[in-house]
Computed example of a mutant assay.
Amino acid sequence: MWGVLSASLFFLPFNRLIASVILVAAVGMGVYHQVLTPLSLACLAIIAISIWLRHQYSHQRIIRLLVEIFLVACSIALFYHLIPGFNNPLMVNQDKLGPLSSPYSLYYNFDKALVPFLLFICLPTLFNAGKRDRKVGVRAWVTLALSVPALLLLAVLLGGLKIELHMPHWMLAFMMANLFFVSMAEEALFRGYLQQRLHQWLGAYPALIITALLFGAAHLAGGILMVAFAALAGLIYGLAWMWSRRLWVPICFHFGLNLIHLLFFTYPLYQHP
């Protein structure tokens, strides 16, 4: 089921019809495996009706706006697991990767994986926002790529992380979940939608800073240091989107940072002995 759901997300930027057909199959499998309950299906049916209304009354601006606001609100609710009826399975339960790492749990989140689909309906340019910034050269991109490990090393200097090598047995499960159900969902919301909309309204750099701060605030549960770390990471992902105008670029930066973090540093956080 999770491979099918991942495949639907993979095809979403290239062919919406194929992605939708695969998503329907994933939903059917989710019902069969009781990941989706009648309550979650009822909520998804309401979302589907709103999408139909948006399509049916596409010529009426006020209806399009109201439906977009509703779909964005639903996306945020799915992101924070606020819509009931999703039995997201626990794949890793309080595993301690190393002596200095804090316990880690991994869920496969069906609800969060739906976020890119809803936002793509709201904003057709979610994955491709136009021409990239040709003034940004190779040196700038190399510097941005190097800022990923530099940020993790900064976290070490500040005491939030320690260097610790890992290769957990659930590595492949982590990679699929983190790429599609975490990095893609979060980047679709923060860079693909929020930063792009704010870019249209306020300009490039205000959009970059505001989105990075919101991304940091979304990690408040991890503490103040995590908020600061996430905000700085948000600047990296935001620049990747701003320079490329392609959502897959910040997704790769986001996934790369998380993977480097898992492999070479205490994960998810440093736990004092």
Rank of each mutant, 00 (worst) to 15 (best):
F120R: 07
R54T: 01
I83E: 11
S75G: 15
L144W: 04
I51V: 14
S101F: 06
N87M: 03
G130V: 04
L154A: 13
I51N: 00
W141K: 02
N87W: 01
Q60N: 09
I121W: 11
L153K: 02
A77C: 13
L82E: 13
K131V: 00
N109I: 08
S105W: 08
Y80M: 14
G85E: 04
D95G: 03
G137V: 06
K112E: 10
D111I: 04
L82G: 08
L154G: 01
L118R: 11
C74K: 10
T125F: 08
M91C: 03
L114F: 06
L90E: 12
G98Q: 09
A140M: 06
S102Y: 04
F79W: 15
H81V: 09
P84C: 03
L90I: 04
S50L: 12
N93S: 14
I121H: 08
G85C: 00
R54K: 14
M91Q: 12
Y80A: 15
K112A: 11
P103K: 00
L151A: 01
R132A: 12
I76V: 15
I62A: 12
V115I: 10
L53E: 05
G85Y: 04
H55A: 12
C122N: 11
V142R: 05
M91V: 15
Y104Q: 01
F120I: 00
L106Q: 13
K135R: 13
V136G: 00
A150E: 05
Y57G: 02
H55G: 11
F120H: 14
R61C: 06
A140D: 06
L119A: 09
S147A: 15
P124G: 03
G85L: 06
V148T: 04
I83W: 09
P99D: 07
D95S: 14
K135M: 05
